[in-house]
Design a protein around this nucleic acid. Sequence first.
DNA 1: CTAATTAATGACTCAATAGTCAGTAATAAA
DNA 2: TTTATTACTGACTATTGAGTCATTAATTAG
Lengths: 214, 214
Amino acid sequence: MQPKTRWRRRKEARPGEIIDAALNLFVQHGFSATRLDDVAAEAGVSKGTVYLYFDNKESLFRAMVQELIVPVVAQAEEHAAQFQGTQTELIRMLVHSWWDNVGKTRLANMPKLMVSEAAHFPELARYYVDNVVKRARKLLEDALYKGIEQGEFESCDVKSAARILLSPLVFSVIWEKSLAPFDSDDYDIATYIALHLDIFFNGISLDSGVTEHV
Amino acid sequence: MQPKTRWRRRKEARPGEIIDAALNLFVQHGFSATRLDDVAAEAGVSKGTVYLYFDNKESLFRAMVQELIVPVVAQAEEHAAQFQGTQTELIRMLVHSWWDNVGKTRLANMPKLMVSEAAHFPELARYYVDNVVKRARKLLEDALYKGIEQGEFESCDVKSAARILLSPLVFSVIWEKSLAPFDSDDYDIATYIALHLDIFFNGISLDSGVTEHV
DNA sequence: CTAATTAATGACTCAATAGTCAGTAATAAA
DNA sequence: TTTATTACTGACTATTGAGTCATTAATTAG
């Protein structure tokens, strides 16, 4: 069962394994507090090997972000494009699938990590905003526009409304991964999200009178 | 005009000046990326002087947090206690005064800083949650309870509702201090807050039907 | 089986910075 | 004016961790 060799040559598998190790440690300790020696150890290689596949610590960080999040956004866009139903139902579907694919997984750590590190990695921050945030917002904005056209929602400032819809979701994962462990009052996130959606849809339903902010 | 002396003895003023310098640099670069030499320089003293008044870098960080935020929370509590008017008006007042005293000032940097550093400073995180977050939530929860009793709002899960009310506000300052500089779509925060309050109050008004989450 | 290639290693260098402390100069006391 | 006190300095130490590279060993080619 013991391998005869001290190590194997596994050119194909290494980058993925290193990225995976990096994700675990970067989300746990942040960028600067993560030692590359530890990333290497977690990936089962030496530090030299990390430098064989990535130029430096920052480039590993970037690779990790790109690798992990873009597929999720793309999948959400496909789901939305194929969706049959009212815009209210579409938004509920997007929120719940975001929760299943991001909120409940280790990807839930990304928003806090990006917020914390944005100032140190401007190029990466721009990439994240363009490829994740803007695309996510656009899905919601499009649904809100259509919903207004189709008479599901009161006319209102759609760009603000999309942010209002998104904020409590993103904030909840940031909170969970930062201060929640120190908060003795716990709460049920499923109830929180359900109530948020109910208040929001009630708030923008046609009889609501939120027209002053068009 | 030139002072004859190379430096002055100013035992009373130093700690405050050092805390002030620390705030400017910690919020700009984060905790670990801030050099104590730079804090000292910004405060107009040498590094040795910083260690005369604070045990170490962490203790300076804690002093800064305590010094700056607790007074703001205490003031909000007083305002709320003295308030005459409906609970809807009270909540609107609290939100707007939070915006004036936190959102528009350099204190707006605190949420992002705490979220980023919480994992490295568990004791400080607990202090912040207990002395800032819980007290802020309590103000809103109390207003919502009273509003329900007095028939202003539909009965609902008050703890979740208070978080839903707070999230978009806190998130907006975190966003502004992190990724917003990389986001070309800008938006007007005043419009966003006004719309949030309108949607929220419409959403929980008596005719809304959000009763299922009691 | 032997030689050539290259994936992988880990001891090393180098830079950055938290924290120390012996010495200095401003102030107060005698 | 002289002496005692102490706020303040800044050069120093100790540590940490990013990035390098000469060497080693797994694999492939001949």
